[in-house]
Design a binder for these strands. Structure first.
Length: 842
RNA sequence: GCGGGUGUGGCGGAAUGGUAGACGCCGGGGACUUAAAAUCCCCUGGGCUUUGCCCGUGCCGGUUCGAGUCCGGCCACCCGCACCA
């Protein structure tokens, strides 16, 4: 007897096991089918899966399953970005080992993902904290070192003197360590760097070919790389020295009215040696805040050094200032200031009474038009000697040519992008595979001695890097001379781990990081899906590693991700009790129009819909939702309503509606056999059309990742089938519908196929093909024509498709409503859009 | 400040320059039931003098037979970068 309800608690696990046993989702690199690599950003194993993960992986899963149904060999893997600070924090706070904590979390989260029925190739699962992964990473790091793309130099770091550790910029809050609260010091340490700047131009150019990436992300990366072209040149100084400045506007050189150097510029430091007012000013600059708000309101401040700089063309003596708005980190740390055409210079000149000269004007006739603010735009050069009358671009070239000819300057490209510092003074990361020998210097660990594994017996009870104070780990013999030497105790930035994991997913030989030919069969990733928060760092680093590995001959692709999709967040209402404390969705209930706390019945304030966060307690646990509604309802909710790039507000009523729809489909699938034979077995052409139109539209929507639209079309088709009388067409429609929902609600599809014996062949729905849409059925015989009078809709009428213009016009003019609105006026013009609309202009 | 994005019912949102509000949620009414749940049916942008008409896609203007959509100018909110010479 037929059950009335679909029972996910029974069905979900059954089908997940069936897919496992059939090895449905194992990717075959040797397959002749067209390949499709669908990848979602792998999670950090923080403890439990978040609803945001579920949304991300559901989108990828629908695409992966759809690709399989359309005849592709699909690689859809999953792994763990498993190194990082939270594991060490847990070790310090709870006394657990980072490895134990991490692997426990991985077990939990893997279980959660499996409950959602994702079509993942678990045979390729990897964790970056596994020596089988990071050992290969060490090999790649050594390869890059030998290619000259890795180097060491001294660099300033944020040092927390209490925790005895280096902090990332994000971990310094108001100058204090985020954990210890201690004042952070700047320390110079020997650090490892990857030479990403060597690829700056390539990484910039490559963006132009990434049509599958959001424009927003490409722009963010472009700005991050920050290319600017200009002139670096030398001012001779009245004290006998000189100062190098950099400008992107060499055309405005005749408008320079002063020179400014950064407070930490050597020239400023020199002046401070003998001038204590200068020293005081430099101190003042250092004290300035660095927050966004402070910078925005910060006043331009300067200190006149009394030194003069000689203008290279006019010979004029320009004052040299120390200025708080000049940065040592960019260009040469010194500028020529042109107040007429740079707003900062303008503000500064106003304050200190310096000349403001116009050297670019809309036309030569406006050479002396007054300036009320800096004019950074294009125009024609004026008041500028030999470049008068030139355009900006032409003048730039002319000035650079003169400077180079005179030997006092050269055209130069400056980048905002810096080399990537990858040293971390921490335990839970990839050990940097180098040995420091007093005699031989820095020596790479021989590859046959890889992996350099982390010691397991480590102590987190005292601050600092446990690798440094481990009794034996760092003591080794030098691979070159055999003398006593020490291992490098820094580990690699975790972004290195995620810079090549997509290669290891594609190919996993035991003896090397990946097989070049096998990787070539899968890459680039056809569709990469993840959060916008990785728009710059992760995605730029992964692009860099790919190019670097291609550069040293290990790879055949330059860009790892052909298409990128950044999905929105999952949000939820927030709830606050009267005392201001946050309440979780499970702690409140609706009481009429109000909300009250379940515990004590007191009123609750409903706050904004915000990103789910533990601190505001507006989180829902995916496991609870799977328990209550089953995996398919949760998956369906993740795809419904909001466009995938926008935020998705989680709501109880929303997920309940999805649960209802699952049951509604179940009941409909139960009707598949009705009317399939006998007297009722007639065709229903209208329904056939609806089915084929939906097949084509849903396919297009999935390929465009417009899941919300695909969902809406499936609702429409469901309603149309429900309303249709029994017929062979209706039974076919139901079995087609089962295939359409299969990528989204795979458990329901399998269970219904088996339970109601819906004829799709004998195999699993997971192995079924996507239905074909018959082009002949994609258009209707009869169309609705909108009839407008002077652009306003007055009537609609049905007409056969393809009716000639004249006939449509006649039909429209015959309409009683049209005649009423024309009120006998003369028809001046009739616009006919065949099969759509007639507009009568009177 | 610079760059980018978004503004459509009570809510999430649909709509190749051609019937604005598909589809879902909420809400209302009804059927079934002893009752409830479940399910099914109907209504659901605003207004009016309600056989029907008028207004309506952030605001102002423009192009067009026709504008949510294109153009110009504003406003609001969101995101990114930020004294980058």
């Amino acid at each position: 007897m037929t059950e009335q309800r679909f029972d996910p608690s029974h069905a979900d696990g059954r089908w997940q096991r069936a897919w496992d046993e059939a090895r449905c989702f194992a990717a075959d690199s040797a397959s002749n089918k067209p390949k499709s690599y669908v990848l979602e950003m792998f999670p950090y194993p923080s403890g439990r899966i978040h609803v945001g993960h579920v949304r991300n992986y559901t989108m990828g899963d629908v695409l992966a399953r759809y690709k399989r149904m359309t005849g592709h060999e699909v690689l859809h893997p999953m792994g763990w970005d498993a190194f990082g600070m939270p594991a060490e924090n847990a070790a310090m706070e709870k006394g657990v080992h980072p490895a134990g904590w991490t692997y426990h979390n991985i077990d939990t989260m893997r279980g959660q993902l499996k409950r959602l029925g994702f079509a993942l190739d678990w045979s390729r699962e990897l964790a970056t904290c596994d020596p089988n992964y990071y050992g290969h990473e060490q090999a790649l790091f050594i390869d890059l070192y030998q290619a000259g793309l890795v180097y060491r130099r001294q660099s300033a770091v944020n040092w927390d003197p209490v925790d005895q550790t280096v902090l990332a910029n994000e971990q310094v809050i108001d100058g204090r360590g985020w954990r210890s609260g201690a004042l952070v010091e700047k320390r110079q340490l020997d650090q490892w760097f990857l030479k990403i700047t060597a690829f700056a131009q390539e990484l910039l150019d490559g963006l132009g070919e990434l049509d599958g990436w959001p424009e927003k992300v490409r722009l963010m990366q472009e700005n991050w790389i920050g290319k600017s072209e200009g002139l670096q040149f030398r001012f001779d100084l009245t004290n006998g020295g000189s100062v190098e400045v950099y400008t992107t506007r060499p055309d405005t050189v005749f408008g320079a009215s002063f020179v400014a150097v950064a407070p930490d510029h050597p020239l400023a430091q020199d002046v401070a040696m003998y001038n204590c007012d200068a020293a005081k000013f430099i101190e003042l600059c250092k004290r300035g805040g660095t927050t966004a708000a402070e910078l925005e309101t910060a006043e331009k401040l300067g200190f006149d050094t009394g030194i003069g700089a000689i203008h290279p063309f006019t010979g004029a003596r320009l004052p040299v200032f120390i200025a708080n708005f000049v940065l040592m980190e960019y260009g040469t740390g010194a500028i020529m200031a042109v107040p007429g055409h740079d707003q900062r210079d303008f503000d500064f000149a106003r304050k200190y009474g310096l000349p403001i000269v116009r050297v670019v004007a809309p036309s030569a006739a406006e050479a002396d038009a007054p300036l009320s603010e800096a004019e950074p735009g294009d125009g024609v050069l004026v008041n500028s000697g030999f470049i008068d009358g030139m355009g900006v671009a032409e003048a730039k070239r002319a000035v650079i040519d003169r400077a180079q000819g005179g030997g006092w300057g050269e055209g130069k490209t400056v980048w905002r992008l810096r080399d990537w510092g990858v040293s971390r003074q921490r335990y839970w990361g990839t050990p940097i595979p180098f040995i420091h020998c007093a005699a031989c210097g820095v020596v790479p660990v021989p590859k046959d001695q890889l992996p350099v594994t982390l010691p397991e017996d480590v102590d987190f009870t005292t601050p600092g890097n446990p690798l440094v104070r481990h009794p034996t780990w760092k003591h080794v013999a030098c691979p070159q001379c055999g003398a006593a030497a020490e291992r490098e105790t820094d580990t690699l930035d975790t972004f290195v781990n995620s810079s090549w994991y997509f290669l290891r997913f594609a190919s996993q030989p035991a003896d090397r990081p990946f097989d070049r030919a096998e990787v070539a069969r899968w890459l680039p990733v056809e569709q990469y899906i993840g959060g916008i928060e990785h728009a710059i760092l992760h995605l730029l680093y992964a692009r860099f590693w790919t190019r670097a590995l291609a550069h040293i001959g290990q790879l055949d692709v330059n860009e790892p991700f052909a298409s990128l999709f950044t999905q929105g967040m999952v949000t939820h209402e927030t709830y606050r009790a009267g005392d201001g404390s946050w309440l979780s969705p499970g702690e409140v209930r609706r009481d009429g129009d109000d909300w009250v706390a379940i515990a004590d019945g007191r009123p609750v304030t409903v706050g904004r819909v915000e990103k789910m966060s533990k601190s505001k307690k507006n989180v829902v646990d995916p496991d609870d939702m799977v328990d209550r509604f089953g995996a398919d309802a949760v998956r369906w909710f993740m795809l419904s309503d909001s466009p995938p790039e926008r935020d998705l507000p989680w709501s109880d009523s929303g997920i309940e509606g999805c649960g209802r729809f699952v049951q509604r489909l179940w009941r409909l699938f139960g009707q598949c056999g009705l009317g399939g034979a006998g007297a009722d077995a007639v065709d229903d052409r209208a329904l056939d059309r609806k089915v084929h139109q939906t097949v084509a539209a849903v396919a297009a929507d999935i390929e465009a990742l417009a899941f919300n639209k695909a969902v809406a079309r499936i609702y429409e088709l469901t309603a149309a089938i429900e309303k249709a009388p029994p017929s062979a067409s209706r039974s076919n429609a139901i079995s087609t519908l089962l295939l359409l929902i299969a990528p989204m609600m795979p458990h329901l599809a399998e269970e219904a196929r088996e339970h109601f014996n819906i004829g799709l062949g004998l195999g699993l729905v997971a192995e079924a093909a996507w239905p074909e849409a018959d082009p002949a059925l994609l258009v209707d015989d009869e169309v609705t024509i909108a009839v407008q009078v002077k652009g306003k809709l007055r009537d609609t009428l049905m007409a056969p498709r393809g009716l000639p213009r004249e006939e449509l016009e006649a039909l429209a003019l015959a309409s009683e409503k049209v005649q009423r609105f024309l009120e006998g006026a003369e028809v001046r013009k009739v616009i006919v859009v065949p099969d759509r609309l007639v507009n009568i202009v009177a």
